[in-house]
Each structure stands twice: as structure tokens, then as C-alpha cells.
Write a protein that binds this DNA or RNA. Structure first.
Lengths: 226, 226
DNA sequence: CAATGAAATATTGGATACGATCGTACAAGA
DNA sequence: TCTTGTACGATCGTATCCAATATTTCATTG
């Protein structure tokens, strides 16, 4: 069980900061797929040594954001339409399964947590910051699954999500998609609140599948265009 | 596509060697769950600096073998019965799904590869080296799923497997379990060879579920005993 | 002129050295 | 006796420096 209060002044390690910095560049599209990441360039940019940069890259490799080859450095991993299908199929298996387990175990406090996540997501749509929106979207999904008490599966989902994170904006940015996603989130929460495991699972599956289809079709269009 | 010929004198990086060294200690039971891994101790033991040790630990953390907390070092992650259920449930979702995809795409060469993996596994039983047996068991599973062309899902399964690897010997060591597993492997291969996706998937699911049940019950017994 | 091979350069991998952080033992006060 | 503060040692995190490897450039040769 993690501590209930998070430290006010959380001392982040430099490695973690560098990892966030690089991840933000990748997710933000500044480092496109195939881009070579030069350790020294990053180090100079941030005024740190190369070692935390290397360790950050190792973590990002575990998250699937970059690929490291010996003595050849790190390259931003490219996500093909096939990769997206791969990632989302795995999510489509795990999330509906986990949400059923979650509903079987959840307390009233868990419902409150999900509701709060939903409200945060709603509020973010008004502001319209895409990076924030992506984070809160995932926070909602995480809150749904958290009560399942499946830390290993959750960790797997986390990596699947961050691998695909870059491309979520394909689906998450258009205003129409946002209102659709919000309505789906509300529907999911409603079924969740009523502890209807089958319905929640079904809605969640469809929600993820729709997003996947949208992203894959956009990627295919992009690949066809070259 | 990886190179068809592997380099005769494969230059391994020190980090990779250290990672293998530590992983072997963990899987072999020399470092039990909860064991504190001192970077300096490992470094001195192997005559290397602490940096490759740190980076090896980062990789092992990604594989789920250790947990790293800032300024507190790495601890061998303990696998409870609940963790085992978590890991195996995820495998039970992914493997049957992937094997169907594999059968839909596989070539005759893929069937040959699986058959070879099966024969290697059979041969290893005769010799009886448990570490080798575990490796070849997984090689068989991997060969089954490889034609699915789902590298992301395969990577996920790889981490799930290595997290649970330590405890497979609970199930894999008894001679009776070995012959049972071998027969199941043969049955799976037979259905696979005939391209019967539904039957292969069913058999594979049962095969994994049986192993999971065996391990979980043994872990529970251990936990009850304290 | 194309192809091959060797030297130069750039980039990553690893070792040593230093500073920061955490856990613990122990002393002082309530 | 229990709590609180402090000093110490152990361990980790980071910077600087050196070694090994990959890539590029350029000369040489058929």
C-alpha cells in the first residue's frame, strides 16, 4: 500500500526529470519516430551529465518510447498502424477483464475517486490543454481499474498506454471526439456506480475499441500518404 | 528482421552481463524475495564499477524482478499468491488470443520451428537441468506465438514470464508435472499443426491455467505455513 | 569511375571520484 | 520511560574523465 499522503516537496531525481523531459518531447511530437536521441545534446540542453540521460533512456526503453541498440544509441520508436493494433488489442483484453475484477472488490471510496477523476477530466476539456487532457483521460481509466488490486496487470497497461500516448492526440484532439469520449466516460461511470460489471465491461471495451479504430485509420491514412 | 547469422564472438555489454548475473541469482533462489541488492557488493563481486550494476538493476526493474526506491536501493520483488494470480490471469488472456492470430498467419516454416522447439524441450527433460527446462519451455511458447507478428504483446508476455520465472520451478520440477506438461505440449502442437485455431487456443489456455493453479496453490500453502 | 580498405571523427559504454540522502544509534529533555 | 533532536555511517545519485565501438571520409586500386 502506497503512503496516503504524498510528500509536499517531492524530491525528484535528475534521472526522473530527464525522463519526463524527453518523454514530453516525444509525446509532443518534437522528436518524431526514428529521431536519433544524442545523449550529449540532451545533457548540454539541461545542464546535466550524460549519466542521468542514459538512465532516463533505459526507463523510456522499458516504456516502449525508444529503442536502444548497443553503441548505436537511442532512437524514438516508430509506431506503425500494425503496432497500434497490437497495443490496443492487448488493452482490449486487459481492461474489460480488470474492470470486472475491480467492481467485484470496490468500496464506496473507490467510486468517489472515479467520480473525481471524471470531474477533473470534464474540467480539463473546458480548458483544452491536450497534454493535460491525455493525462486525465488515463487517470480516469486508472481509477476505474485500481480497485482490482492487480498491480502487475496495471503496470502492463501503463506501458501499453505510454507507448501509444503520442498517438492518442490523433483521436483526442478533435472537439467532436472529446464530447463523444466524455459521454462515454459518463456512461461507463454510471454503470460502474451501479456495480453492473457486465455492462461496464462492455461499455469500456467499446470505448477503447472506438478510439483504437479512429487512431488506426488515421495512421493508415498517414502511411498511405507516405 | 534480425540478422540471419549471429556474430560468432558476440560482444556483450557489461550491463547485460551483470543483468544476467543478477537475474540468475534471483531465479535460482539465491536472492530470495525481499533481499536487498547492494550495488557496491555486486560491483566488487564482479570486478566492475557500480554504473553497469545500476543500469542492470533498471532493466530488471522493468522486467519486474526487483523494485527500486530512490536512495533506498533495489529489493528483490516478492511474489505473493495474489501476484501470481495477477500475472497468470494476464497470460491467460494474451496467449490464447495471440495463438489464434499466429495460426491465421503462420507458414510451414513456423510449424517446423515449433516442432524443433518441442523436440528441444523433450530432450531437455531427459537431461533434467531445471534452468534449461524453464528456458526451453518458454521457447516453445514463444515459437507458438511468434507468427502472430505482435511484437508489443510478445514483449509484455516476456516481462510477465520473467516475473514469474522464479516460481515456475514449483510446477516444473516434479517429474510427474514434467511428463504432464510434455504431453500437453504435444497435444498443443498437434492442433497447431492442423491449423485448428480454436482447439489450439483452448488447449493452450488449459495448459497455462493448470500450471497457474499448481503454482498458486503451492504459494498459498507456503504463505499459510509462514 | 566504382569498389574496397584504412584512418579520422563522433558517439556511446564504463571507471573513478565526490556530494547528497537516508537509516540508525545514541544522547538529552519532558 | 517515552519522545525528540543530532551525529554518524552506509548507500545511493551525479559529474568528470577514459576506453571501446560505430560511422564517416578519403585515399588507393582494379
Amino acid at each position: 500500500m502506497p503512503p496516503t499522503v504524498k510528500p509536499l516537496l517531492q524530491r525528484q531525481t535528475v534521472t526522473a526529470m530527464v525522463a519526463e523531459y524527453i518523454a514530453a518531447k516525444i509525446v509532443g511530437g518534437e522528436y518524431p519516430g526514428g529521431h536519433q536521441i544524442r545523449q550529449e545534446a540532451i545533457a548540454a540542453e539541461l545542464g546535466v551529465s550524460r549519466i542521468p540521460v542514459r538512465e532516463a533512456l533505459l526507463q523510456l526503453e522499458a516504456e516502449g518510447l525508444v529503442v536502444i541498440r548497443t553503441h548505436r544509441g537511442a532512437v524514438v520508436s516508430d509506431l506503425s498502424a500494425d503496432d497500434a493494433i497490437d497495443l490496443f488489442d492487448a488493452r482490449l483484453l486487459l481492461e474489460p477483464f480488470l474492470v470486472k475484477k475491480a467492481i467485484a472488490r470496490m468500496s464506496n471510496q473507490d467510486i468517489v475517486n472515479v467520480e473525481r477523476a471524471l470531474q477533473d477530466y470534464e474540467a480539463a476539456i473546458a480548458r483544452g490543454d491536450p497534454k493535460e487532457l491525455s493525462r486525465l483521460n488515463w487517470a480516469f481509466h486508472t481509477a476505474l481499474l485500481e480497485p482490482s488490486m492487480r498491480p502487475r496487470s496495471m503496470a502492463v497497461l501503463q506501458t501499453l498506454y505510454s507507448s501509444a500516448d503520442r498517438y492518442l492526440r490523433l483521436q483526442i484532439e478533435p472537439l467532436k471526439a472529446q464530447t463523444k469520449a466524455l459521454q462515454e466516460h459518463r456512461d461507463i461511470f454510471e454503470a460502474y456506480r451501479l456495480r453492473d460489471a457486465v455492462e461496464t465491461s462492455r461499455l469500456l471495451k467499446k470505448h477503447v475499441a472506438d478510439a483504437a479504430e479512429e487512431i488506426v485509420s488515421q495512421l493508415k491514412r498517414g502511411e498511405a500518404a507516405g
